[in-house]
Design a protein around this nucleic acid. Structure first.
Lengths: 156, 156
DNA sequence: TAATAATTGACTAAAACAGTAGGTTATTAT
DNA sequence: ATAATAACCTACTGTTTTAGTCAATTATTA
């Protein structure tokens, strides 16, 4: 997997829906405004999130997006892998430089790091994040995702 | 911190020196050949590694690079942070969007992930990697770092 | 039927990654 | 002394990814 601001945007947007979704689905325009993420960029992200079955869409007036599964059933790693297509599924490329025996020297190190990251992110569900957010913002919740947090770009 | 192939190259190169350094320092030309990393690219990486005090250099014929500290005293995270200058030291930019209270919604998530990654990588020393490598390649050790392992790009 | 809002596709500026090219300086061996 | 070695330094390049824009189409509801 791979962790960039793209993945962060997606997680933030999903959390936004989880918090605001009630009777009505949540519009991208609303998410865009609250989270300061470009509408067109959200559209691209949600195209993927929908194809991966993480959200369902309703067209027309009063339409928008809903979380498609139970909040406990969606992990942060689900969201990230949905928007950040991992190109490098073939571990060592399949051929070229990495012999089946021998591998590259640091292979085990990165493999092990990757599994640690994945373990952590798949252990955090949308439900966890909602709860965390509810606890935190007792009064008015301030949303300001942009440029927040340190730059992260993990590829596992 | 941020994890890319740049960091992987640096770790691979440092491990190469640790394995080959004996009476003589190790030349970049040698590393370049063994690890299939471009010489000029290595020069760039080693400029940083030297400035961070991870390696020491000897000029002229018979010169090259040595590991500057005890192998146990150098962690993988040391190497990576040396070559991948983290721009985003100011956590939330210092101003703009991220209020001191409120922060961005997913702030804690990434902060926590980052510390997990850092914990792991700072727990693995060059000495650990040397030992691992010696155990593995009992006979002939095959080096083939290029494109090996899954693409990784973590920014913490 | 008009407004809403998802859906799609192509296109763009900026940054980072990985690498190249060409030169300068210090040290050693001849 | 001088030639070879190898670190050191600066600037430049092509490709990919990131983040975003623009413009159009389709489905739904008031």
């Amino acid at each position: 997997m791979r962790l960039t601001t793209k993945g962060r945007f997606a997680v933030t947007a999903m959390l936004d829906i989880a918090l605001y979704e009630a009777d009505k689905p949540v519009t991208l325009a609303g998410i865009s405004e609250r989270q300061s993420i470009s509408l067109s960029y959200l559209e691209q992200l949600f195209s993927r999130l929908r194809k991966q079955g993480l959200v369902s869409s309703v067209r027309g007036p009063g339409g928008g997006y809903r979380i498609a599964r139970a909040h406990q059933e969606i992990s942060v790693s689900d969201i990230i892998t949905a928007v950040d297509e991992q190109i490098d599924a073939t571990q060592c490329g399949g051929n070229e430089n990495c012999h089946d025996e021998g591998r590259c020297m640091t292979h085990e190190l990165w493999a092990s790091l990757n599994s640690k990251i994945l373990d952590y992110l798949s252990g955090v569900s949308l439900a966890d994040m909602v709860e965390m957010q509810r606890k935190k913002g007792a009064g008015t919740v301030v949303f300001a995702p942009r440029k927040c947090g340190s730059e992260a770009t993990i590829a596992a």
